[in-house]
Nucleic acid binder design. Structure first.
Ligand SMILES: Nc1ncnc2c1ncn2[C@@H]1O[C@H](COP(=O)(O)OP(=O)(O)OP(=O)(O)O)[C@@H](O)[C@H]1O
Length: 910
DNA sequence: CCTCTCCCCGTTTTT
DNA sequence: CGGGGAGAGG
């Protein structure tokens, strides 16, 4: 998995299949405790008995131009022996347990290619489960290089959630689920829950606690009945009472969702599970199942895995117990062992060579993780150089800390002779809100950045408004959406009127929307006397028109949105609400529209591919039969596919942008890598987080730090503030206890880039690394037409027809966030000194003018590969009438940074 | 029915 | 310090 384009293509050892010898072990893997423990309860490694001769007769699909060349299969190069064994292993079940940076993800990717190219498995019979959509996209991009876009497009690839959603849209009727269900996000769920809790447990102040509890049950595929069963016999009366309450809320919650044809995230899995129970034959088409990041699967995902491979029993899982960081949402590391038990004959493969990090980084990380006493030690070494010491130091406060980070980045970029770019850096924090202080500093330092964690694009009010309209049009039973938009813009239908409508809907057993329709048609509805029927009629007319548009199979979703915002005078509404904010909000709407246009365009591509597909090969046997004898009329509605995609993306799915520093939470950094990483805010209140209770949680926090540290390739900084503001106040903190083992400002005792904390200068070894990496990037530019390296899955040049998978391929659905955070006083953001290197200057074919021809300024900037200025600048640009075509950097530099409020409040120590 | 203001609450991590 | 809920006033 890769975090940046930089990481995407990496200098690789000249020798392939490097023979590993223990003598290579260096630094980290202190050989003393290790050797024994692994084999205890584990099958001996089964060496694949494939004698690998590149059978010349094994040709890949002739239609795929990237087939086996004379020199052998490219996908099998650049693998060490252990990786090679894992990739080519013929054992039906393969379990790969290995530490960070050891190439687990690379193995999955290559194995998929191997299955297709060497073993003639049809791509559509391969299921690949990834942890995020982004991981799926990046993997898709890599696989594409080996087997070509056509084959890649046929793979079944995505997160558990995305895969289930897709199956449910198609076969949901088998378990009485309509295919137009809405996927509720967390806010929707909360809104629901609030009302239910109000009715059931009025004095409860935290409805979300219920959601949380319910989610944990669902993660184990359990229902309200299980809540009661879970109460131990001798439980105190209040505990029983609590369980009853929970069960009650749980039941109502599910009923409500069901009644309105809504599924929450967990439901995707729960119903997915039901679907597999009802249709075990689904696994017939799943000849090979591969799951990445298995240590973070929960019980129901484990079950789904076993159900998917029920028929053919071919399963490859990959994981690292040391990187399990999602127990808090019911992930269960022991799923790894469960697979071992289920497949006793599985090949256990350990990858022990780390290719990512320097020895110094690995040593430090190893020290941290070794403090976990219950951990099963495992081998991990690297042939990479020792590199620079890890820099671990406290700072006066969060502001100073952030400035330090900025200074480091600036210094490195400035002295990097153009070889070091912003995309090489990541700043990682424990909690989302900590990104705020960082953002302020970055804006002031004019360093382009993107933020992961925090307010997401699809959670913004204006976006949710528009989406709610669309959802309502797609699924009139979607009550939360109805409630959201019925009075947006204000139609004089407030809480009381809505309440009446809901009551009437409940009484008549129809949807709120139908009630509204009746009222609009002047029909009488029991219980409702005074209501603004005229306004209601306008509203209904809009929705009806939307439905009509959506029903056209060839509608461009962008057109639907365009109609919607004009019919509702949404822009005027935004202006009336808050003139200041209106501009950026409106731009966000435009960005959504733009995204929709791209989505429609990619659907068109897919359609074409499909047709070719049908012509080309009609010997499709077992699978898709039941599609024909059932009414699946509406599965192909562009609007629905758009909404589905939108519901499943998260902000980690943003395409990487080489001109920007990544600011992210530790969790969201899982599986990614950057040349330079800062773990920031590592004080005792954050790591372990002060809310963590119990040893198990503390250990998870430690692993989180470990994951963060092991994201770094060349330089790692771990810093903490000595004072931090909390609730407006200012409190002293201390360095995270996890860091005691890395005592001193630098660890280990080796050369350091920093003698003081002021400004770093790139030294020879570092420069060499970056130069090599850049060279490698240029040589291995993803494709000759020049899509930007790392722009994962971005709709490429018009010529590149991509058989996109409409449900799981979501490359273009995370628009550039226009308005990261409203209250930043400081403006301006520009590429830091040093400029861009060859890699970032690769020509990039602009996105084809899609459907409606809507192109926002941001989109233009983005496709031009230019750094995208943050919201405020763009707003300014609009105001001055210079939309779009201007060079962002010039524009930004013209903006004089104002002194930020953050500057004034440094509190002196003590 | 809408909007403004005041006050209280609480800060993990996310598909 | 910030979001959201409650309550008052237009
Ligand atoms: N045999 C190899 N030769 C050269 N580079 C390699 C090799 N195997 C992996 N790498 C590189 O090492 C880095 C880490 O690989 P990868 O992301 O697959 O590791 P991982 O085990 O999935 O890590 P994590 O557990 O942290 O997600 C990548 O940059 C990858 O290109």
């Amino acid at each position: 998995m890769i975090g940046s384009a930089a990481a995407n293509v990496k200098p690789e050892p000249a020798t392939n299949h490097t023979v590993m010898t223990k003598s290579h072990q260096s630094g980290v893997a202190t050989a003393k405790q290790e050797p024994v423990e692994q084999k205890s309860d584990i099958k001996p490694d089964i060496k694949p008995d494939v004698k690998f001769d590149m059978k010349p007769d094994l040709k890949p699909d002739v239609r795929d131009e990237s087939g086996a060349p004379e020199g052998g299969f490219p996908h099998l190069q650049s693998l060490n022996d252990a990786q090679f064994g894992a990739v080519t292993c013929d054992n039906p079940a393969v379990i790969i347990l290995a530490g960070p940076g050891s190439g687990k993800t690379r193995v999955i990717t290559s194995r998929v290619a191997d299955l297709v190219l060497r073993r003639d498995v049809r791509p559509e019979n391969i299921v690949v489960v990834t942890f995020t959509n982004k991981a799926a996209n990046e993997m898709r991009e890599r696989i594409q290089k080996a087997i070509g876009p056509y084959m890649t497009g046929r793979l079944q690839m995505g997160t558990f959630h995305a895969l289930c959603a897709k199956l449910l849209r198609k076969h949901g009727y088998r378990i009485e689920l309509k295919s137009n269900f809405t996927i509720a996000d967390r806010q929707d769920s909360e809104a629901y829950m609030k009302r239910i809790v109000k009715a059931v447990d009025p004095k409860c102040t935290k409805p979300t606690n219920y959601l949380w509890d319910i989610s944990k049950f669902k993660a184990r595929n359990q229902g309200p009945a299980d809540v009661l069963n879970a109460v131990s016999p001798g439980a105190a009366p209040w505990e029983v009472r609590k369980a009853q309450l929970l069960a009650d809320v749980f039941t109502r919650y599910q009923d409500e969702l069901k009644a309105h044809n809504i599924l929450d995230f967990d439901d995707l899995l729960v119903y997915g599970h039901q679907l597999f129970m009802a249709m075990p034959e689904l696994s017939d088409g799943m000849h090979e199942v591969l799951v990445d990041e298995f240590q973070d699967t929960n019980a129901i995902q484990y079950d789904l895995t076993t159900m998917m491979c029920a028929k053919h029993q071919h399963l490859t899982i990959v994981g690292d117990p040391d990187q399990s960081i999602y127990a808090w949402r019911a992930a269960d590391v022991t799923n790894l062992h469960k697979v071992q038990k289920l497949f006793p004959a599985a090949s256990m493969i350990h990858l022990e060579e780390n290719y990512r990090s320097t020895q110094a980084i690995l040593q430090a990380a190893h020290r941290v993780i070794s403090q976990d006493k219950k951990r099963i030690a495992k081998q991990l070494y690297t042939n990479n150089p020792m590199g620079h010491a890890v820099f671990a130091k406290g700072h006066l406060n969060s502001q100073r800390e952030a400035e330090f980070v900025c200074n480091q980045i600036r210094g490195l970029v400035a002295t990097g002779q153009g070889q070091i770019i912003n995309g090489d850096f990541a700043v990682l924090v424990r909690s989302g809100y900590l990104t705020r202080a960082l953002e302020e500093a970055f804006v002031r330092a004019k360093i382009p950045h993107r933020i992961i964690g925090g307010m997401r694009f699809y959670e913004r009010a204006e976006i949710k408004d528009v989406l709610a309209y669309l959802r309502l049009a797609d699924n009139p039973h979607d009550r939360p959406s109805f409630e959201r938009v019925i009075n947006v813009p204000a139609r004089g239908i407030g809480d009381t009127s809505v309440g009446h409508i809901i009551d009437a809907a409940n009484a008549l057993q129809i949807s709120c929307y139908d009630v509204a329709k009746k009222l609009a048609n002047k029909e009488t509805v029991p219980g409702i006397k005074r209501i603004s029927r005229v306004k209601l009629a306008e509203f209904v007319a809009v929705i009806e028109k939307l439905r009509e548009m959506a029903a056209q199979p060839d509608t461009n979703v962008a057109d639907i949105i365009a109609y919607l915002v004009s019919a509702t005078k949404y822009e005027a509404y935004l202006k009336a609400k808050d003139a200041k904010e209106a501009t950026t909000r409106w731009e966000n709407v435009q960005e959504l529209l733009n995204t929709a246009a791209q989505h429609s365009a990619s659907l068109d591509d897919k359609e074409e591919e499909k047709n070719e597909d049908d012509d080309a090969m009609d010997e499709d046997e077992d699978e898709d039969d039941d599609r024909r004898d059932k009414p699946t009329v509406d599965t192909n509605v562009p609007l629905r596919s758009f909404l589905n995609s939108v519901s499943l993306v998260s902000d980690i799915d943003q395409e990487t942008d080489q001109s920007k520093v990544t600011i992210s939470t530790l969790h969201a950094a899982k599986g990614l890598e950057w040349p330079v990483v800062f773990v920031v805010g590592a004080d005792a209140s954050q790591l372990p987080h002060s809310l963590s209770t119990g040893p198990a949680q503390i250990e998870e926090e430690r692993r989180l730090l470990y994951v963060g540290m092991t994201r770094a390739e060349r330089l790692l900084y771990v810093t903490w503030p000595e004072r931090r503001t909390r609730y407006g106040g200012d409190e002293a903190t201390i360095r995270s206890p996890f860091l005691a083992c890395i005592d001193g400002a630098t660890f280990p005792k080796t050369k350091t880039l920093l003698l003081t904390t002021t400004s770093p200068t790139v030294d020879k070894s570092l420069l060499e690394f970056f130069t090599k990496m850049r060279q490698h990037q240029v040589e291995h530019a993803p494709n000759p037409t020049g899509s930007q390296p790392g722009a994962a899955g971005t709709p490429a040049a018009p010529t590149a027809k991509r058989p996109l998978d409409l449900d799981t391929d979501l490359p273009d659905l995370v628009p550039v966030l226009k308005k990261p955070r409203p209250p930043l006083a400081v403006q301006g953001s520009a590429p830091a000194a040093g400029g861009f290197t060859a890699a970032s200057q690769l020509p990039r074919t602009p996105t084809p003018p899609s459907g409606g021809g809507f192109t926002s300024a941001a989109a233009l900037l983005r496709t031009a590969g230019a750094p995208v200025a943050p919201a405020k600048d763009r707003r300014k640009k609009k105001a001055t009438g210079a939309a779009g075509a201007v060079n962002a950097a010039d524009q930004v530099l013209a903006t004089k940074p104002k002194r930020g409020s953050a500057g004034r409040k440094y509190v002196s120590k003590k």
